[in-house]
């Protein structure tokens, strides 16, 4: 477990995805171990989201806590299951060199970034869950937190992809470890930093940009399908709600209800 945590740390620090490490054309991360860490982080995030149900006025709903804890990892897994096949197919169609396994590694690493961020926001979410009775507020806070986590993860994905294309292109790669001249600011080699240089094929970039948008949309709607995560205090506990409405409409109405 400790070794896998260190692997996640290497990804967060950007050590696993600097040009040196990517020279082989793939990210060296253990998929199984990292998936386990992601699962644990997902459970932590889920329990923080679900803690609202435990402290609500009509008495603790532990089933909701359990449901949320399980549902957050499921949300990410299912979103991946829905979007991964088409990503691989289009990625191969436009002639990218990423194999199935290296694509999976890339996505697992990006999910690791997202869930590390979400789990780190966990204490904030849990604190508001304990101290707040307003259901609409909690909904919006969770949407905000998940959006931030998701955006960072997808940014990581795009940057890493860009770096992968740098090392797999035939052009010589200038590693950024040359000593910087006097007066220049040393660039931090963070996981989210842009690396200058030749970019990969235009089509591959388009495919990934589209996929990032699709992933975000599918994730949002998947969270709607799997709802309730927080648990409306005025409704009974259910594992899943009826099929109705959609994520974006609901967020908009929730926002309006904050003012009434």
């Amino acid at each position: 477990m400790l070794k896998w945590l260190k692997d996640l740390d290497r990804i967060l620090r950007g050590e696993a995805t600097n040009l040196e490490a990517l020279r082989e054309g793939r990210i060296e991360v253990p998929v199984v171990g990292l998936s386990f860490v992601i699962l644990v982080l997902g459970l932590i995030t889920g329990s923080c989201v679900g803690s609202f149900a435990v402290f609500r006025p009509r008495g603790p709903f532990f089933m909701q806590l359990l449901a949320s804890t399980v549902k957050v990892p499921a949300l990410f897994l299912l979103t991946l299951v829905v979007t991964f096949p088409s990503l691989y197919v289009f990625n191969a169609l436009v002639g990218s060199r990423l194999t199935l396994l290296s694509l999976l590694r890339l996505l697992v690493a990006a999910l690791g970034v997202t869930l590390a961020m979400l789990a780190a926001f966990g204490p904030i979410v849990a604190f508001f869950s304990v101290s707040t009775t307003s259901y609409p507020f909690m909904t919006l806070l969770n949407v905000l937190v998940f959006s931030i986590g998701g955006m960072l993860g997808l940014k990581f994905l795009l940057q890493t992809l860009h770096r992968l294309s740098l090392v797999s292109s035939d052009q010589p790669v200038f590693l950024p470890d040359n000593p910087p001249g006097p007066g220049t600011v040393p660039k931090p080699a963070g996981a989210l930093d842009k690396v200058e240089g030749y970019t990969l094929g235009k089509q591959v970039r388009v495919v990934f940009r589209c996929w990032v948008v699709v992933f975000a949309l599918v994730g949002a709607q998947m969270s709607w399908v799997l709802r309730p995560f927080i648990g409306d205090p005025n409704r009974e506990f259910e594992w899943f709600r009826a099929r109705e409405s959609n994520f974006f409409q609901s967020v908009w109405y929730t926002f309006l209800s904050l003012f009434s």
């Binding site: 967060l12 620090r13 590390a116 780190a120 204490p123 904030i124 604190f127 960072l152 963070g190 989210l192």
Partner: peptide, 15 residues
Amino acid sequence: IGLPSFFVLNTLYGL
């Protein structure tokens, strides 16, 4: 409460 998110953000941005 705020420290964990600050930690992860600092790590991600290479600091």
